[in-house]
Design a protein around this nucleic acid. Structure first.
Length: 459
RNA sequence: GCCAAGGUAGCUUAGAGGCGAAGCGGUGGACUGCAGAUCCAUUACACGUGAGUUCAAAUCUCACCCUUGGCUCCA
């Protein structure tokens, strides 16, 4: 039975979709004003895994993500670079999608741009105006926080505390906590609205988009921890006020922060790492494994050591699959008695894996179960107490498990065709030398290959 | 100030009342011509400190120490 930690209740809750086995999942996408960083990667990989697992459990998942392509940061950046905001947004959106593809994040069913939902946004603001939850000033349209006493429930804060620490509130607003639904602007980019030219506030796009595609209430809303306040609070306030229905979302899920060598990642500290830069030094599988090795809600530390450990760990899985492949090729029986025992163990492992993932997607636990099984398999392989058919079953299990987690465990071969052929020749020659016990030359070949980062291992 | 998360072997992480965990790393052994992989053993007094509850506490309670983060830019 799947349990999900709900930020709203601060508890793990039994998961039950609103409608049958259909799950409506929404995750806050990026503001496309710059290349995405590895903190984004952590969040989106986490939700990719969550979506994969939900699908594995037999749910039909509709995964929606917004793209914030109109926002002050985009406009500022565009004017710095002297380009149109929309062009800048499209450029970084394309790069974001490329990054996600490189990371194997491919579970999103629909990306929705804010600028393509302006009419839905306007409709929602009109509803809020009609119902008396919003008011117009000379600078824009604002949500009236005092009309929504539940504000602060998700982040578990009370509004009075927050108001004390507010810096220079806009004097036109009635309450310091009121947030903009529509900003009046008469410089590009702007859209026409009942309140004149302007553009939407940050929070409204998400509820306009989710109402359009998911309805007024849906199952899961995800995002980084930093979005809880004020962004997700604002979403709740807007949508629940507009629809009169509560809750907007059944399960609020938030991913923990990614730190770099123990420090918060920020541009001012100079430790800001984009996904692209990271991928120059690490392969995507390693990074995903690194993400998997910590629970999604915990902080995770990106450092040379942790990435190295992730790389070495995943190699252990690659290696067992390679060993299995070799054994399948070799001359071992199709079935043996010991299969029964290994089959039982496999069933047990599967169950434990599911149990771990059911427990709020506990991937570190799930991995440790896989590693335990791998040790058992290796042990049997070591004493040739395993059959071909069993090995095939085990391999399928490992590959399937990998695909739930989004990691290709089948291992990587870093060669193009020609060099592989060439390598075969070298290995063949070296084997001849070894037959002649010419260790000096064969070791020389091996060490020369090693200098080229080609590791040759004899059986 | 307010709020939150956390302190588990050398490192990275799970666990959450009762069999001392997983990976990485170190050491020794088996296997190898050697190396590697693998297996075995070992390294590990494992649970921030001090009290309390309990037959039993890393896990619950209280106090304290320390770390990190959030407080309307933020995945």
């Amino acid at each position: 039975m799947l349990k999900i930690y709900n930020t709203m209740s601060r508890k793990k809750e039994k998961f039950q979709p609103i409608q049958g086995n259909r799950i409506k999942l929404f995750v806050c996408g990026p503001t496309v004003y710059d290349d995405s960083h590895i903190g984004h990667a952590r969040t989106y990989i986490s939700f990719d895994i969550i979506a994969r697992y939900l699908e594995y459990k037999g749910y039909s998942v509709f995964y929606l993500q917004n793209i914030t392509d109109i926002e002050d940061k985009i406009i500022n950046r565009a004017s710095e670079l002297d380009v149109f905001p929309i062009d800048l947004a499209r450029y970084f959106e394309r790069r974001y999608l490329e990054d996600m593809q490189a990371l194997g994040v491919d579970r999103v069913n629909l990306y929705a741009r804010a600028t393509e939902h302006i009419s839905e946004i306007i409709v929602q603001i009109e509803t809020l105006m009609d119902k008396g939850f919003a008011y117009e000033t000379e600078t824009g349209v604002y949500f009236n926080e005092s009309k929504f006493p539940e504000f602060g429930n998700l982040s578990h804060r009370n509004v009075e505390d927050l108001n004390i620490h507010r810096v220079s509130p806009d004097s036109k607003k009635r309450n310091p906590g009121d947030f903009a639904l529509w900003k009046k602007k008469d410089v590009e980019p702007y859209w026409d609205s009942p309140w004149g030219k302007g553009r939407p506030g940050w929070h409204i796009e998400d509820t306009a988009i989710t109402e359009e595609y998911l309805g007024q209430q849906y199952d899961i809303h995800g995002g980084g921890l930093d979005l809880i306040f004020p962004h997700h609070e604002a979403e709740i306030a807007q949508m629940e006020s507009a629809s009169g229905k509560s809750p907007l979302v059944r399960y609020w899920m938030h991913t923990g922060f990614l730190n770099v060598s123990g420090e918060k990642m920020s541009k001012s500290l100079g430790n800001f790492i984009t996904i692209r830069d990271m991928l120059k030094n690490h392969d995507p599988e390693t990074f995903r494994f690194f993400v998997l090795s910590t629970h999604y809600r915990s902080p995770i530390d990106f450092s040379k050591t942790t990435l190295e450990q992730a790389k070495n760990s995943i190699e252990r899985i690659y290696k067992v699959i390679k060993t299995i492949d070799d054994a399948i090729e070799s001359d071992i029986p199709e079935t043996i008695n010991n299969d029964n025992e290994l089959n039982d163990k496999l069933t047990e492992t599967k169950n434990q894996f599911i149990e771990a993932m059911d427990n709020d997607f506990n991937t570190p636990e799930a991995l440790s179960i896989i590693f335990n099984y791998i040790r058992d398999v290796n042990r049997e392989l070591d004493i040739d107490n395993i059959s071909k058919s069993m090995l095939k079953t085990i391999k399928n299990f490992l590959i399937e498990t990998g695909s739930i987690l989004g990691v290709d465990f089948s291992g990587k071969v870093y060669t193009d065709d020609k060099s592989e052929d060439l390598l075969d020749v070298i290995v063949e020659v070296r084997n001849k030398l070894r037959e002649k016990k010419d260790w000096e030359l064969s070791d020389l070949i091996r060490s020369k290959l090693k200098e080229l980062d080609i590791i040759l291992e004899d059986k």
